[in-house]
Amino acid sequence: MISYEPFFDTMKKKNISSYWLIMHGLSKGTYESLRKGKPCSTVTIDRLCTLMDCDVPDIITFKKD
């Protein structure tokens, strides 16, 4: 199972709000999908890494069910 828990941890560590991400190009729908743990594209992961100046493991992790 893919988890976005690192994404929210990274947001907190970098003091980045959902409002900031949305104002810098992330759609509200995409943010809500991440919040609900729904799948997202590698394009979205790339965008988040660019916006937040971080690496993929700072956004997602794999957890065995």
Rank of each mutant, 00 (worst) to 15 (best):
C49L: 05
S41F: 02
I22W: 05
S41A: 04
T50R: 13
I45Q: 03
M1N: 08
Y4D: 04
K64L: 12
T10G: 06
K13W: 04
K64R: 11
L26R: 03
I45C: 05
Y19I: 11
D53E: 15
D53C: 07
Y4K: 04
Y31E: 05
T44W: 09
E32A: 15
P6M: 06
D65V: 12
M23L: 14
K64T: 11
Y19R: 14
S3R: 13
S3L: 08
T10R: 08
F62D: 02
D53M: 03
L21Y: 04
M52N: 03
I22G: 01
K63F: 06
I22C: 10
H24D: 07
V56C: 00
F7N: 01
T30C: 12
K63V: 14
P57E: 07
T44P: 04
H24R: 12
P57D: 06
D65Y: 10
I59W: 01
E32G: 10
T30N: 14
E32D: 10
D46F: 13
S27F: 07
T10W: 00
S3M: 03
L51C: 06
S3T: 15
D58G: 01
L34S: 06
S41M: 08
I22M: 12
G37R: 09
I45P: 03
D53N: 14
Y31K: 01
P6N: 02
T30E: 03
